[in-house]
């Protein structure tokens, strides 16, 4: 594909930990508004890739471009400024703030008022604050947490914390949301809700890059899938192509449960189709 269409373009991305090659010469692109799944067995380099894109790790080699601009090696807050926001695998909500304030932190990069106009309580600063608060409340409704809007976040369940993290990332008006194993630790009913939510996000034109272990959750959801094993891309394609790809079946042979999951995921999509 032409790189002008790519929201995020990863070329030759490489990262070592000591002698271990965690990610090797990885290429892929994320297009606007799509849901791209990144899967692989444990230790395949998914989380490393994620952290390289989010700025939590620096690559040893390779390029990452966001909307054509090179962003590899930038610190996390600069990545966020460029419209790429993430969630954490183990929820990292801000425990000392209400739900709505948590979401408003996500809009940090959207604020234009300087400290002087805040101290002076200038009309512009106040209007901006009110607008961001209204938008945060809208997003809390969007992820289904409206009832808990003013709640203390420590009272939320794990699944609600995950939804809060998604709302928080949405508040930054992202072009791309990075989700690190969002299905982990969720009950089946919560999984359905999460899948619907992610489709809703993509429908708003926001691209979703999803790292997932749970193929049953991922395959019906993702438009395209990139499969990693030992840091190397072994396959890329639609969910159906991936399901029947010999290299993928090989990679998951050590993990029969995952294969069964993948097969079931196939059945459920076929049933739905």
């Amino acid at each position: 594909m032409r790189s002008a269409d790519a929201l995020l373009e990863v070329r030759g991305l490489t990262r070592r930990f000591g002698g271990l090659l965690a990610v090797a010469d990885l290429d892929f692109t994320v297009r606007p508004g799509e849901i791209l799944g990144l899967i692989g067995p444990n230790g395949a380099g998914k989380s490393t890739t994620f952290n390289l894109i989010a700025g939590a790790l620096r690559p040893d080699a390779g390029e990452i471009r966001a909307g054509g601009e090179p962003v590899a090696g930038l610190p996390p807050h600069e990545i966020a400024r460029r419209g790429i926001l993430r969630t954490f695998q183990h929820n990292r909500v801000f425990a000392g703030m209400s739900v709505v304030e948590n979401v408003m932190v996500g809009a940090h990069t959207r604020f234009r008022a300087g400290l002087w106009s805040i101290v002076g309580a200038r009309a512009g600063a106040r209007a901006e604050e009110a607008a961001v608060r209204a938008r945060a409340e809208e997003l809390i409704g969007f992820v289904g947490l409206a009832e808990w809007r003013e709640a203390d976040v420590t009272t939320l369940s794990f699944g609600q914390g995950r939804l809060l993290e998604i709302a928080r990332a949405m508040a930054g008006d992202p072009r791309l949301i990075l989700l690190d194993e969002p299905a982990a630790g969720l009950a089946p009913a919560e999984l359905d809700r999460l899948a619907a939510l992610l489709r809703g996000i993509a429908a708003r034109g926001i691209a979703v890059l999803l790292i997932e272990h749970d193929m049953r959750f991922l395959l019906p959801l993702a438009g395209r899938v990139v499969v990693l094993n030992f840091g190397v891309k072994i396959a890329e394609g639609s969910a159906d192509e991936i399901r029947h790809h010999p290299a993928v079946i090989d990679a998951y042979l050590g993990d029969p449960a995952a294969l069964v999951d993948a097969a079931r995921a196939g059945e459920s999509t076929h049933a739905a189709a």
Partner: peptide, 12 residues
């Protein structure tokens, strides 16, 4: 204060 990593990921 609550989570420097999450704050940085939100652009702080």
């Amino acid at each position: 204060r609550d989570s420097p990593e999450a704050a940085a990921a939100m652009g702080v």
